[in-house]
């Protein structure tokens, strides 16, 4: 992916910043992961994310269990210098088990990838471009009316913020079980499916 640009690192001899997540490690590579410049860019990227949609931790289901929030804490981002855009995004509450709040989405597309590559259902997708991009279900229809959704919940498990949530959870209750997702992906290789 290499899309969020938060893991950019400086590699000696290469003028460009490279994303750590997609760059292959080489023998003798000299990597700076935490320089003044990188810390500044990371903070700015986070500020841009917070200003882009309506990330209000105090009323969010993921408060306290949110990757975006944790990253902002760790980077010392205590305020946002950019103008908040306050876009009006809808909440899709049509699914019997899960909800999707576009206001909290950071378009990381984890839900899309997990839906296509792990579950293989292909329900989730990205539509539109730029600031108007958003996650859709099937042919841009309410999630509840989707024929392809298997209700597996992997998208909810993978969501880093409070954009996807279990119905019935309230502020701060949305804890995610990442271990389950990892188990699904690696269990076959590790022969964990077979009961002892």
């Amino acid at each position: 992916m290499g899309a969020c640009r938060l893991c950019l690192v400086e590699v000696a001899g290469i003028p460009k910043l490279l994303p750590a997540c997609t760059t292959k490690v080489r023998e003798g590579m000299e990597v700076q992961t935490n320089s003044e410049r990188l810390r500044k860019y990371r903070r700015m990227t986070l500020e841009l994310l917070f200003a882009e949609r309506n990330h209000v931790c105090a009323v969010c289901v993921a408060n306290g269990h949110c990757e975006l929030q944790t990253l902002a804490y760790s980077q010392g981002m205590d305020h946002v210098r950019y103008d908040y855009r306050f876009p009006k995004w809808e909440v899709d509450d049509t699914h019997p088990l899960f909800g999707m709040d576009h206001n909290r989405c950071i378009l990381c597309s984890r839900c899309v990838r997990v839906c296509w590559h792990i579950e293989g259902a292909g329900t989730k997708n990205v539509s539109g471009r730029g600031a108007k991009a958003r996650i859709i279900s099937d042919l841009n229809q309410p999630w509840g009316t989707s024929d392809t959704c298997t209700k597996c919940g992997k998208c909810v498990m993978s969501c880093p913020t409070g954009a996807l949530f279990n119905k019935g959870s309230t502020v701060g209750e949305m804890e995610r079980d990442r271990g389950k997702l990892e188990f699904i992906v690696t269990a076959r290789e590790k022969k964990q499916w077979i009961a002892e």
């Binding site: 290499g2 640009r5 200003a51 882009e52 730029g130 600031a131």
Partner: peptide, 21 residues
């Protein structure tokens, strides 16, 4: 650029909006 950004990476998607603003 703001209208034509694909929306994949954050600096371009959100940064162009802010610069335009």
């Amino acid at each position: 650029c703001m209208d034509e950004s694909c929306g994949k990476c954050i600096p371009c998607r959100a940064g162009t909006v802010q610069m335009h603003g």
